[in-house]
Simulated scan of single mutants.
Amino acid sequence: MLDLFNPEPDSSQNLLPHDGEVHYYGHVMPLAQANYYLERLLTTIEWRNDEAIIFGNLIVTKRKVAWYADKPFSYTYSRTTKYALPWTPELLELKQLAEERTGETYNSCLLNLYHSGEEGMAWHSDAEIMLKKNGAIASFSFGAERNFGFKHKESKEVVSVFLEHGSLLVMKGTTQTHWLHRLPPTKKVTRPRVNLTFRTIVEQ
């Protein structure tokens, strides 16, 4: 039944005007199921503070990360390397749901835990050499609802989308080549948010 006051987004619509594809599916599960996954992800994932080497200095973020996959892939970004852990039952369930909804396949998942709105992610693109070129990245959001932004690398055009609890977004095509994305910080949000990005690693 369509809720005229809160219609689900049209997932066939490309949110980007050109040079890439981003599709937002909105809620892909009932609220109770989204609450269940949030609780399980907060308590069963092996969270670690993220680390990056910037201008030769080791930076440890408040934001926490985890990395899971079909096999113990190594994954390097910001000049630090992580090794994937084996899937949990909940991650396998969400991987299957992402594959069913997006029509793509994934072999790994990078997770981020933002404890409050004061934690975010600066402009970047997911274009690491080990990722499948122009491959799809499926992004689940659980917990606090946050704005998510895209900025074209040349024209500086900006597109934003509000990511809801229990929602799914997919980036594919040449999105990572031409667009940056970010999670801007906000003091208005005090609850945690868990983000899962299912990806495809190509073994070198």
Rank of each mutant, 00 (worst) to 15 (best):
K71L: 04
A98M: 07
E104M: 10
W67R: 00
L16I: 13
P89L: 05
P17F: 01
G173D: 14
S141R: 02
V194C: 06
L111Y: 11
H23W: 09
V158H: 09
F198V: 00
H115P: 10
M130S: 12
Y77M: 01
H178T: 03
G20C: 06
P86I: 03
L16M: 12
T174I: 12
K71M: 08
N35L: 15
V65T: 13
F142H: 06
R79W: 00
L85N: 13
P9K: 00
S160I: 03
I53L: 11
E203Q: 15
S108W: 05
Y106S: 01
E128V: 10
S12C: 11
M29W: 15
P192K: 03
N134V: 06
L85S: 14
T197S: 12
T80H: 13
N14Y: 11
K188I: 04
F150N: 00
K156Y: 09
A122Y: 08
H18M: 15
A127L: 05
T197L: 08
T80V: 15
F55W: 06
Y77K: 01
P184D: 11
E128Q: 13
T80Q: 15
H115I: 05
A122F: 07
V194W: 01
F5K: 11
S160V: 04
L91I: 01
A144L: 11
K95V: 01
L111Q: 08
T61E: 03
A69K: 04
D19A: 13
V194P: 02
H27V: 06
P72F: 05
G20H: 00
M121D: 06
Y106M: 00
F55Q: 05
T177M: 12
K95G: 00
L131M: 10
V161D: 13
D126C: 04
W179R: 01
E39Q: 08
R48E: 15
Y77W: 08
L31Q: 14
K62I: 11
S125Q: 09
N107F: 07
G103N: 13
A52L: 14
Y36C: 04
P7T: 06
D50Q: 10
S155R: 09
R199I: 00
L85F: 11
A136V: 08
R63V: 06
V189K: 10
C109Y: 02
P72A: 06
I54S: 00
W47I: 08
W47M: 07
F142N: 03
E128F: 12
H152F: 13
H124L: 09
Q13K: 14
V170R: 03
A136F: 05
L91V: 03
N49A: 09
I201K: 03
H27M: 09
V170C: 05
F140P: 02
P185V: 15
D19W: 05
S116P: 06
N147Y: 09
H181N: 02
N112R: 10
E90T: 12
E21M: 14
T177P: 04
P9M: 01
Y36H: 14
F162G: 04
R79I: 01
D3T: 12
M130D: 13
E90I: 08
T200M: 04
F55Y: 14
K64E: 12
R146L: 01
L91W: 02
S108H: 07
L111F: 11
S167T: 05
K62L: 07
F150K: 02
V22K: 08
E99K: 07
